[in-house]
């Protein structure tokens, strides 16, 4: 089946795309929604400008749509983008990286149902430590592009997700009740390399903005 993946450039949407391809689905395009609202309920903004480069490395066309990020209006923008993907790439389904968020997934399910296409959430209800371990096993190279919760300090920005990081998350999740794979938005990620990429995304962390356990990296 030909599908489009909702793509933010982070670990969940990239891994969901990878799972879709592994199961024999053709990813005809990526859809990225750039929200101007940093508090968007639907779309996560850090490092999203790099999705264009990631799409190039995957050799998959990308549809980028800007939204003001107002609560329900951003869903109209998403629907317009999906309609464009149906028209342009004849897709029959959408793949998302939703894990736990009923808010996000039910809204995307509604849009797909209206447009009479399939909706795939291959990471739905997945254990977050299992997800981190699978990412490492499948050679995903990921860094943290931003953090937004205690105890994530400035030093976490740009840090690689490796075995040591996963072990640390196990301990932190017990101590602070955080989600080890950041399903609660504790940190944002950026995929630098994975089996979908033809070569690695080469970037440099130029500066870190923010304060009080809320920081994001600027990359070039």
């Amino acid at each position: 089946m030909d599908v489009a993946a909702l793509f933010s450039g982070g670990k969940d949407s990239t891994y969901a795309s990878y799972m879709a391809r592994k199961h024999g689905y053709q990813i005809k395009c990526l859809i990225t929604i750039v929200s101007k609202n940093p508090e968007s309920f639907m779309f996560h903004t850090p490092a999203i400008e790099l999705t264009k480069k990631q799409a190039e490395l995957m050799g998959i066309p990308i549809l980028i749509k800007e939204t003001k990020g107002e609560k329900e209006l951003e869903l109209d923008d998403l629907k317009i983008a999906i309609k464009e993907a149906i028209k342009k790439y004849k897709i029959k389904g959408i793949v998302t990286g939703a894990i736990e968020s009923v808010y996000q997934s039910s809204r995307i399910q509604n849009i797909c149902n209206d447009l009479k296409i399939e909706c795939f959430n291959p990471l739905w209800q997945k254990n977050q430590l299992e997800l981190l371990e699978e990412l490492l096993k499948n050679n995903f190279e990921i860094i943290l592009s931003g953090v937004s919760a205690y105890p994530f300090s400035k030093e976490f920005v740009g840090r690689k997700i490796d075995k040591r990081f996963v072990e640390e998350m196990k301990l932190l999740s017990q101590k602070y009740f955080i989600n080890p794979a950041a399903e609660g938005g504790e940190f944002e990620t950026l995929v630098l390399n994975c089996p979908l990429f033809k070569k690695k995304l080469c970037i440099k962390l130029t500066s870190i903005l923010g304060e009080n356990y809320s920081y994001r990296g600027l990359f070039e």
Binding site: M1, A20, G24, F120, N121, P122, W124, Q125, N127
Partner: peptide, 15 residues
């Protein structure tokens, strides 16, 4: 009917 839906509707029960 779709292979990929196994992960969404069956695997959570297995877990």
């Amino acid at each position: 009917m779709e292979k990929l839906h196994y992960l969404e509707f069956v695997k959570p029960i297995e877990d």
